[in-house]
């Protein structure tokens, strides 16, 4: 039997690229959807607000694993068999990220003082102008650090995509282990890959937080 060697590390590195790709899909998709949900969450209309709350509660109250199953098998039930694993995993992680990013950003939007809304309103700005010109630029500053922090969660949670047959870092580790059975060495290496991806992100998040605390600008 072959032992753990360079070829396996190369395989893991290749799989790590898929982890990065899936993370990007989840972050971009979840970011767009989450931004829309965050805006709906602070909407002037009670019905829109309620719909956003229900969406967030459902997403946050469902384990990511179940979300992935629901989408993977749900799409098959709906008559589209043979969904590519990347689509199912991407969609599941997008929904998951949107639920959390929406709530993070909702908090940032609402932490802009009410007097800023009032001042903008008294200058005859429309609700949309108040949001885009006055509130969001200030909320953005507050949102940067926690958003980058959440990116770390996304990267780690892509490991669950293996359940729908997507070969990313964790699944690649399992595959190697099935063939050479050196679990400790293999999963330590896998963990190092995750660490190499996440550590720069959390360092960046912390430095952003420091920088934005020093100056409000």
């Amino acid at each position: 039997m072959q032992s753990f060697g360079l070829i396996h590390v190369e395989f893991l590195a290749w799989a790590a690229l898929w982890t990065v790709g899936l993370s990007l899909i989840a972050f971009v998709g979840g970011g767009l959807l989450g931004f829309a949900v965050a805006l709906a969450r602070v909407s002037g209309s009670l019905a829109v607000r309620a719909a956003a709350i229900v969406y967030i509660q459902i997403v946050q109250g469902t384990p990511l694993l179940i979300l992935l199953f629901l989408i993977y098998f749900g799409v098959a039930v709906a008559g589209f068999s043979g969904v590519p694993a990347i689509l199912a995993a991407g969609a599941g992680l997008t929904v998951y990220s949107s639920g959390f990013l929406a709530e993070i950003w909702r908090g940032c939007i609402q932490s802009v003082p009410k007097t800023q809304w009032e001042a903008a309103e008294c200058l005859a700005l429309t609700r949309w102008q108040r949001m885009t010109r006055v509130i969001l630029p200030q909320a953005l500053r507050m949102a940067t650090a926690p958003t980058v922090g959440f990116l770390v969660q996304i990267v780690k949670n892509t490991s669950l995509a293996s359940v729908v047959g997507f070969v990313e870092l964790s699944q690649a580790g399992k595959l190697i282990n099935n063939s050479i059975f050196e679990p400790f060495t293999i999963f330590v290496t896998v963990a190092l890959f995750y660490f190499a991806l996440c550590f720069p992100l959390s360092t960046w998040s912390r430095s952003l937080e420091r920088k934005l605390n020093v100056s409000r600008r």
Partner: peptide
């Protein structure tokens, strides 16, 4: 004009 100015800090 308000007591707390309410200028836009950004």
């Amino acid at each position: 004009v308000f007591q707390s100015y309410n200028l836009f800090p950004h």
